[in-house]
Simulated scan of single mutants.
Amino acid sequence: MHTPLTEPPAEAGADSLEDQKAAITRLGHELRTLVETTVRTAASPDTLHRVADGVRQVTAQLTGRRRARAEIPEVDGFPGGPRMYSPVVGAGSPLAPPVSITPTDDGLIGHCTLGLAHEGPPGYGHGGMSAMLLDELMGQACTAAGTPGMTVSLQMRYHQPIPLETPLRILGRVTGTDNRKVFVTGTITTEADPSTRLVSADGVFIAPDPDRARALFPGLREEA
Protein backbone atom coordinates (compact mmCIF):
# COMPACT_ATOMS: atom_id res chain seq x y z
CA MET A 1 0.00 0.00 0.00
CA HIS A 2 2.90 2.35 0.75
CA THR A 3 5.94 3.00 -1.40
CA PRO A 4 9.11 2.32 0.64
CA LEU A 5 10.96 5.49 1.57
CA THR A 6 14.18 4.53 -0.17
CA GLU A 7 16.03 7.31 -1.95
CA PRO A 8 19.03 7.57 -4.28
CA PRO A 9 22.28 8.82 -2.74
CA ALA A 10 22.05 12.52 -1.97
CA GLU A 11 24.12 14.85 -4.11
CA ALA A 12 26.04 17.65 -2.46
CA GLY A 13 24.97 21.19 -3.16
CA ALA A 14 22.46 23.87 -2.31
CA ASP A 15 19.71 22.40 -4.49
CA SER A 16 19.83 19.00 -2.78
CA LEU A 17 19.78 20.65 0.65
CA GLU A 18 16.74 22.71 -0.32
CA ASP A 19 15.01 19.57 -1.60
CA GLN A 20 15.81 17.84 1.69
CA LYS A 21 14.45 20.77 3.71
CA ALA A 22 11.26 20.80 1.65
CA ALA A 23 10.75 17.08 2.22
CA ILE A 24 11.44 17.44 5.96
CA THR A 25 8.98 20.33 6.16
CA ARG A 26 6.27 18.36 4.38
CA LEU A 27 6.73 15.32 6.62
CA GLY A 28 6.79 17.53 9.72
CA HIS A 29 3.48 19.11 8.72
CA GLU A 30 1.82 15.72 8.23
CA LEU A 31 3.20 14.41 11.51
CA ARG A 32 1.89 17.44 13.41
CA THR A 33 -1.52 16.84 11.83
CA LEU A 34 -1.34 13.20 12.93
CA VAL A 35 -0.36 14.15 16.50
CA GLU A 36 -3.15 16.72 16.78
CA THR A 37 -5.70 14.29 15.36
CA THR A 38 -4.48 11.57 17.71
CA VAL A 39 -5.05 13.63 20.87
CA ARG A 40 -8.52 14.64 19.67
CA THR A 41 -9.87 11.32 18.45
CA ALA A 42 -12.58 9.30 20.13
CA ALA A 43 -12.09 6.38 17.75
CA SER A 44 -12.79 2.83 18.88
CA PRO A 45 -10.07 0.57 20.29
CA ASP A 46 -10.15 -1.52 17.10
CA THR A 47 -9.52 1.57 15.00
CA LEU A 48 -6.70 2.72 17.27
CA HIS A 49 -5.01 -0.69 17.12
CA ARG A 50 -5.30 -0.71 13.33
CA VAL A 51 -3.84 2.80 13.07
CA ALA A 52 -1.02 1.87 15.47
CA ASP A 53 -0.12 -1.05 13.17
CA GLY A 54 -0.11 1.33 10.19
CA VAL A 55 2.11 3.85 11.99
CA ARG A 56 4.56 1.06 12.86
CA GLN A 57 4.74 0.10 9.19
CA VAL A 58 5.39 3.72 8.20
CA THR A 59 8.11 4.07 10.83
CA ALA A 60 9.82 0.97 9.45
CA GLN A 61 10.18 2.73 6.09
CA LEU A 62 12.49 5.38 7.54
CA THR A 63 15.59 3.38 6.76
CA GLY A 64 19.21 4.40 6.38
CA ARG A 65 21.79 5.90 8.70
CA ARG A 66 20.48 7.48 11.90
CA ARG A 67 21.86 10.73 13.25
CA ALA A 68 24.02 10.41 16.35
CA ARG A 69 23.12 12.27 19.56
CA ALA A 70 25.55 15.18 19.17
CA GLU A 71 25.57 15.25 15.37
CA ILE A 72 24.45 18.52 13.79
CA PRO A 73 22.04 17.87 10.90
CA GLU A 74 23.31 18.96 7.49
CA VAL A 75 20.08 20.91 6.98
CA ASP A 76 20.63 22.99 10.14
CA GLY A 77 22.36 26.35 10.35
CA PHE A 78 23.79 25.81 13.84
CA PRO A 79 24.92 28.00 15.44
CA GLY A 80 22.72 30.97 14.66
CA GLY A 81 20.69 29.51 11.81
CA PRO A 82 17.38 27.65 11.47
CA ARG A 83 16.99 24.32 13.27
CA MET A 84 14.77 21.97 11.26
CA TYR A 85 13.99 19.64 14.17
CA SER A 86 13.70 22.18 17.01
CA PRO A 87 10.68 21.36 19.23
CA VAL A 88 9.80 25.08 19.14
CA VAL A 89 10.56 26.44 15.67
CA GLY A 90 11.42 23.33 13.66
CA ALA A 91 9.38 22.84 10.51
CA GLY A 92 10.34 19.16 10.62
CA SER A 93 9.40 18.55 14.24
CA PRO A 94 6.08 16.88 15.13
CA LEU A 95 6.37 18.53 18.58
CA ALA A 96 6.72 22.17 17.45
CA PRO A 97 3.74 24.53 16.99
CA PRO A 98 5.94 25.66 15.04
CA VAL A 99 6.87 29.30 15.81
CA SER A 100 7.69 31.69 12.96
CA ILE A 101 10.07 34.49 13.96
CA THR A 102 10.64 37.97 12.55
CA PRO A 103 12.85 40.83 13.78
CA THR A 104 11.50 43.97 15.43
CA ASP A 105 13.18 47.31 16.15
CA ASP A 106 14.51 46.06 19.49
CA GLY A 107 14.25 42.27 19.45
CA LEU A 108 12.33 39.39 17.93
CA ILE A 109 8.66 38.50 17.66
CA GLY A 110 7.31 34.98 17.27
CA HIS A 111 3.91 33.88 16.02
CA CYS A 112 2.27 30.53 16.68
CA THR A 113 -0.93 28.79 17.69
CA LEU A 114 -0.94 25.98 20.25
CA GLY A 115 -3.15 22.96 19.70
CA LEU A 116 -4.51 20.25 21.97
CA ALA A 117 -1.18 18.46 21.72
CA HIS A 118 0.23 21.27 23.90
CA GLU A 119 -2.60 21.22 26.45
CA GLY A 120 -2.10 21.54 30.20
CA PRO A 121 -5.34 22.55 31.97
CA PRO A 122 -8.32 21.74 29.72
CA GLY A 123 -8.49 24.37 26.99
CA TYR A 124 -5.16 26.02 27.89
CA GLY A 125 -1.50 25.54 27.11
CA HIS A 126 0.86 23.66 29.41
CA GLY A 127 2.97 25.98 31.56
CA GLY A 128 6.12 24.19 30.47
CA MET A 129 5.24 24.96 26.87
CA SER A 130 5.10 28.66 27.73
CA ALA A 131 8.58 28.41 29.26
CA MET A 132 9.91 26.63 26.18
CA LEU A 133 8.46 29.27 23.84
CA LEU A 134 10.01 32.10 25.82
CA ASP A 135 13.35 30.36 26.30
CA GLU A 136 13.61 29.92 22.52
CA LEU A 137 12.63 33.48 21.62
CA MET A 138 14.85 35.00 24.28
CA GLY A 139 17.79 32.85 23.23
CA GLN A 140 17.32 33.77 19.59
CA ALA A 141 17.07 37.43 20.61
CA CYS A 142 20.58 37.09 22.08
CA THR A 143 21.88 35.73 18.80
CA ALA A 144 20.11 38.42 16.78
CA ALA A 145 21.73 41.08 18.98
CA GLY A 146 25.18 39.63 18.29
CA THR A 147 25.54 38.16 21.80
CA PRO A 148 24.61 34.45 21.49
CA GLY A 149 24.38 32.56 24.74
CA MET A 150 22.91 29.63 26.64
CA THR A 151 20.25 29.87 29.34
CA VAL A 152 21.49 29.95 32.92
CA SER A 153 18.40 31.47 34.55
CA LEU A 154 14.77 31.88 33.46
CA GLN A 155 12.32 33.47 35.90
CA MET A 156 8.73 32.92 34.79
CA ARG A 157 5.58 34.81 35.78
CA TYR A 158 2.23 33.36 34.76
CA HIS A 159 -0.33 36.17 34.69
CA GLN A 160 -3.14 34.38 32.83
CA PRO A 161 -3.51 30.96 31.20
CA ILE A 162 -2.54 30.64 27.52
CA PRO A 163 -5.63 29.78 25.41
CA LEU A 164 -5.32 26.98 22.87
CA GLU A 165 -6.25 27.44 19.19
CA THR A 166 -5.59 31.17 19.55
CA PRO A 167 -2.89 33.06 17.60
CA LEU A 168 -0.11 34.10 19.99
CA ARG A 169 2.72 36.65 19.99
CA ILE A 170 6.00 35.87 21.75
CA LEU A 171 8.51 38.68 22.25
CA GLY A 172 12.18 38.46 23.15
CA ARG A 173 14.43 41.47 23.82
CA VAL A 174 17.99 41.90 25.11
CA THR A 175 18.09 44.50 27.89
CA GLY A 176 21.79 44.52 28.80
CA THR A 177 25.10 42.68 29.00
CA ASP A 178 27.83 42.15 31.59
CA ASN A 179 30.93 40.52 30.11
CA ARG A 180 29.65 37.16 28.88
CA LYS A 181 26.26 37.53 30.59
CA VAL A 182 23.26 38.66 28.53
CA PHE A 183 20.05 39.88 30.19
CA VAL A 184 16.81 39.28 28.29
CA THR A 185 13.07 39.80 28.79
CA GLY A 186 10.18 38.05 27.08
CA THR A 187 6.39 38.06 27.00
CA ILE A 188 3.54 36.03 25.55
CA THR A 189 0.29 37.71 24.54
CA THR A 190 -2.48 36.97 22.07
CA GLU A 191 -2.37 38.54 18.63
CA ALA A 192 -5.79 40.07 19.28
CA ASP A 193 -4.75 41.72 22.58
CA PRO A 194 -0.99 42.36 22.53
CA SER A 195 -1.18 44.80 25.47
CA THR A 196 -2.31 42.10 27.94
CA ARG A 197 0.56 39.91 29.13
CA LEU A 198 -0.31 36.27 29.66
CA VAL A 199 3.20 35.12 30.60
CA SER A 200 6.41 37.10 31.09
CA ALA A 201 9.98 36.15 31.86
CA ASP A 202 13.39 37.56 32.77
CA GLY A 203 16.39 35.53 31.73
CA VAL A 204 20.15 35.44 32.02
CA PHE A 205 22.12 33.86 29.19
CA ILE A 206 25.85 33.35 29.02
CA ALA A 207 28.15 32.95 26.04
CA PRO A 208 30.41 29.92 26.54
CA ASP A 209 34.10 30.48 25.82
CA PRO A 210 35.43 28.77 22.67
CA ASP A 211 36.91 25.78 24.52
CA ARG A 212 33.67 25.18 26.40
CA ALA A 213 31.65 25.55 23.20
CA ARG A 214 33.76 22.92 21.44
CA ALA A 215 33.34 20.57 24.40
CA LEU A 216 29.56 21.04 24.45
CA PHE A 217 29.15 20.80 20.68
CA PRO A 218 31.78 18.42 19.28
CA GLY A 219 30.16 18.67 15.84
CA LEU A 220 31.58 22.20 15.60
CA ARG A 221 35.19 21.08 15.90
CA GLU A 222 35.65 20.55 12.18
CA GLU A 223 34.25 24.03 11.48
CA ALA A 224 36.24 25.81 14.20
Results as ranks from 00 to 15, higher is better:
Val35Ser: 03
Leu48Gly: 03
Ala52Gln: 07
Met84Gly: 01
Val39Tyr: 08
Ala52Ser: 09
Arg83Val: 15
Glu36Thr: 10
Gly80Thr: 04
Glu71Tyr: 07
Thr38Ser: 13
Pro45Tyr: 06
Leu31Val: 04
Ser86Asp: 07
Gly28Asn: 10
Glu71Phe: 08
Ala42Gln: 14
Glu36Arg: 04
Glu30Leu: 15
Gly28Tyr: 06
Ala68Lys: 12
Val39Ala: 07
Arg69Gly: 00
Arg50Trp: 12
Thr63Glu: 09
Tyr85Gln: 02
Thr38Phe: 07
Arg50Glu: 10
Gly64Met: 02
Val58Ile: 15
Thr63Gln: 15
Arg56Asn: 03
Pro73Trp: 02
Ile72Asn: 01
Asp76Arg: 06
Gly80Asp: 01
Val55Arg: 01
Ala42Lys: 14
Arg65Asp: 10
Ser86Ile: 00
Leu62Cys: 13
Ser86Leu: 07
Thr63Leu: 15
Ala22Thr: 15
Thr33Met: 11
Val55Thr: 05
Glu36Phe: 07
Pro73Thr: 04
Arg65Glu: 08
Ala22Tyr: 08
Ser86Thr: 05
Arg50Val: 08
Thr59Tyr: 07
Thr25Val: 02
Gly28Ile: 06
Pro45Trp: 10
Gln61Tyr: 05
Pro45Asn: 04
Arg69Trp: 13
Gln61Ile: 01
Ile24Pro: 04
Ala70Pro: 02
Arg56Ala: 00
Pro45Met: 07
Ala22Gly: 05
Leu31Cys: 11
Thr63Arg: 14
Ser44Ala: 14
Ala42Pro: 06
Leu27Gly: 04
Ala42Trp: 08
Ser44Met: 12
Val51Thr: 04
Val35Ile: 09
Glu74Val: 14
Ser86Arg: 05
Val39Gln: 09
Ala70Met: 12
Val58Thr: 07
Ala52Asp: 02
Arg56Gly: 00
Ala23Asp: 02
Arg66Glu: 04
Thr25Cys: 01
Gly77Glu: 14
Phe78Val: 10
Arg26Glu: 15
Gln61Gly: 05
Val51Arg: 03
Thr59Gly: 05
His29Cys: 07
Ala42His: 12
Ser44Pro: 00
Gly77Gln: 14
Val58Ser: 08
Val75Thr: 15
Pro82Lys: 15
Thr41Phe: 11
Arg69Val: 11
Ala70Lys: 13
Arg69Phe: 15
Gln57Val: 04
Arg69Ile: 13
Gly54Ser: 00
Val35Asn: 01
Thr38Trp: 09
Gly28Ser: 06
Pro45Gly: 00
Gly81His: 06
